[in-house]
Structure formats: structure tokens, C-alpha cells
Amino acid sequence: MEIRIAHLYPALLNIYADRGNIICLAKNCQWRGIDVVVDEFDLGKKPDWEAYDFFYLGGGQDRDQLLVCRDLAAMGSGLMEAVEAGAVLLAVCGGYQLLGEFYRTAAGETMEGVGLFRAYTVAGQRRCIGNVALESDMEGRRLTLAGFENHSGKTYLRDGQQPLGRVVAGFGNNAEDGTEGIIHKNAIGTYLHGPLLPKNALLTHHLLEKSLKHRYGPDAVLTAVEHALEDEALDVAVRLARR
């Protein structure tokens, strides 16, 4: 079996050690005997959208996100079509914002987003920084997730959109409505930045299983591996967020 991962803009969107998520996906494939291909696509390089099961976008500096924003617009709708066809996508922090409808800066200028997520972001006054924990309903399965957030943009979901989870401790999408992130089909946007996947082993499992199903059909099953160390790190992160 094989899973193909497209890492979009790794040179520009890598501010919070986003590489940790890629390392995590690759290792989890290896441990299960699944072949894994990770291809990187920087500015001006367009993937063959149908060839990949998993797309990843990290966070970047403001200046770099602007460059990516223009490039993404020029890429056309390939990424959206891939997601509509069931491909998995994880977009973190800046990547999450870029895939929304728009970003409105403090000066009132509007930057058009891809519109893959039915959500929009406006510049906030206060930076949301700290450990964050949430309760997530992943297709009927309750998951506790934790990570670190650092963003000034406030993201609002359109009516009827499903958040990744409910904030237990921390700020989340906008520090107002208790939501964190978004789920649309197999695409997830979140402010839990950088290496979110290693300590959220059940989320990793979920995303990889969806990737397998994307490639091999609905009967494909991902075998389990032990994740005691991961759970221990998660428990500590949840505890720190609650403090």
C-alpha cells in the first residue's frame, strides 16, 4: 500500500516547525508497512492534484503568506476539486487562513482567499498565544486534542460549518464563540500550529485512514500502532492548557 503526500510551500510556510507533521505522517506510514511519498511544491510549482491523497499547508510569516496567497490564486481550483473528491487536507494557522474566503487586515484591506473553507478571517487587536485544548467529534468519535496557538487573525465560520472542536482551554478560532478550526469533508483547518500530529495520535490515525480510503476505497483499514508516549505528551499539553 502507498500514501502520497503533497507538502505545499514548505519553503515559505514552515514557521512553527510544520515539518514535525510531515515527519509524523511518514513515520506512521513506515511503522505500518505503508510506502509513503512526500513531494514538495514551492512557489510556481503545481502538483498533479489527482496523484495525491494528502495535502499539507503550514503557517508562515505575513510577508511569505502574501506570496503564497497570490500563487494559490493562480493555481486555480485543483486543490478544491481534490478535496471535493475525498482527498485529505490539513491546513495549519496561516495555511488555514489562506484557504478561507478572505482575510481583512487591520487597515481594512481585503485579501482574497481560496474559498475552500466557508470561513473568513479579520485581523484582531490581541494576539492569541498559548496552549490550547479542545474536544472534537470526529465522525461520532470523541477526541481530545491539544497544541499551541499563536495568531492575531480571528476566524469566523459561516453558518452550518463544522468546527474541528470546542475549545476547552485557550482561544480557538476567534476567542469569542468557543470554536476551533473547521472540518469540511476530509479537509481540516486549525490554529493548532506546527507539530500538532505527533501528540494527537488518534487524529493522525484518522487522517491516514482517510488517505488510504481515498486511494483504495472505503474498505481500506489502517492498522493500529502503540502510542503511549504520544498520549503522555498529549496529557501534559492538555494539563498545561487548562492551567
Binding site: G20, P198, K199, L229, E232, D235, A237
Partner: peptide, 18 residues
């Protein structure tokens, strides 16, 4: 340290045998 578990996990993913 306060994040001993996270550090150990990083080493596990770097390829150190548990």
C-alpha cells in the same frame, strides 16, 4: 523537564528506539 514527554516523542520520531 516540564515537556520531557514531548522531547522523548521527538527522539522516537527521529528514529531512536523507545
Amino acid at each position: 523537564g516540564t515537556r520531557a514527554g514531548e522531547m522523548a516523542m521527538r527522539l522516537k520520531y527521529a528514529g531512536v528506539d523507545q
